[in-house]
Amino acid sequence: MHLQVWRKVTEAWREGYTLKPWSRNPMERLYHDYFYFHFYNLPTPKHRNGCYICYQVEGTKNHSRMPLLRGVFENQFFPKKRRHTELCFLSWFRTAKESLDMMLSPGEKYRVTWYISWSPCFACVDEVVKFLREHTNVELIIFAARLYHSDSLQYRQGLRKLHDAGVHVAIMSYYEFKHCLNDFVFHQGRSFCPWNDLNKNSKNLSNTLEDILRNQED
């Protein structure tokens, strides 16, 4: 296949994807084209209005980890009231915690990891911090593909608030994108195919995040 034609085929996800039914929230895995479209890490891509979380919940004790649950959340649009994906997860976790507690041994804690297409908005940050105060046995790690409104004071303060609450916030690198495709995507045996500017975008976003977390004056 001619190189120019091949690039058009492999990078078609930059422009859009075919809408598919989303049976429930959370869903076991993310559609292949949804992943490439929504997790593309250009800092300000067009038409990425939704947000997706690939999550894993683990039990931790004495530095060892036991996988408990994993899946994918998207924003809630209908038929119920609209709700951001972070709040969907928190609501689900509160409901599922009773069953999850039965899987843990005494003294074990939860380690929750989010691979999220956009970093949380400032309103969701407040709910996340409140949640962590209520659940002191939960450790939260967030890997974001992109930073949401990183030039806005409220959103920058929100990221610092997460950091101050003990949340490990970082930008997704090649390793996290590959891990997401392997473990959270209907890939049908297809290997992760990185886009040309993945590493450059990741580095630039990491520098921006580091600057936000370090600068307490704005």
Rank of each mutant, 00 (worst) to 15 (best):
C88P: 10
C88L: 11
F89H: 04
F89P: 07
F89S: 05
F89M: 00
L90V: 01
S91K: 13
S91M: 12
W92N: 02
W92F: 12
F93W: 09
F93C: 02
F93P: 02
F93L: 13
R94L: 15
T95F: 02
T95I: 03
T95Q: 06
A96N: 12
A96M: 13
A96Y: 14
K97Y: 10
K97P: 14
K97H: 11
E98D: 13
E98P: 02
E98T: 11
E98F: 11
S99P: 06
S99T: 09
S99L: 12
L100V: 05
D101G: 11
D101Q: 14
D101Y: 09
M102V: 14
M102K: 15
M103E: 13
M103S: 11
M103D: 11
M103A: 11
L104W: 12
S105G: 12
S105W: 10
S105H: 12
G107S: 14
G107Q: 06
E108K: 10
E108W: 12
E108C: 10
K109L: 14
K109H: 14
Y110E: 15
R111A: 14
R111E: 13
V112R: 00
V112Q: 04
T113E: 07
T113S: 07
T113L: 05
T113Y: 10
T113N: 03
W114L: 11
Y115I: 01
I116K: 07
I116L: 07
I116R: 10
S117D: 06
S117A: 09
W118R: 04
W118C: 04
W118G: 12
S119C: 13
S119D: 11
S119L: 14
S119P: 15
P120H: 01
P120Y: 04
C121S: 13
F122P: 15
F122R: 01
F122S: 14
F122A: 08
A123S: 10
A123E: 15
C124L: 02
C124T: 00
V125W: 07
D126G: 00
D126S: 06
E127F: 05
E127D: 10
E127P: 02
V128N: 00
V128C: 03
V128R: 00
V129Y: 00
K130Y: 07
K130Q: 02
K130P: 01
F131W: 09
F131G: 01
F131Y: 01
F131H: 02
R133V: 00
R133P: 00
R133C: 07
E134K: 03
E134N: 08
E134L: 14
E134C: 04
H135R: 09
H135T: 08
H135K: 01
T136W: 07
T136N: 11
T136C: 12
N137A: 13
V138F: 10
V138E: 04
E139C: 03
E139G: 06
E139F: 02
E139H: 03
E139K: 01
L140S: 08
L140G: 15
L140Y: 06
I141H: 12
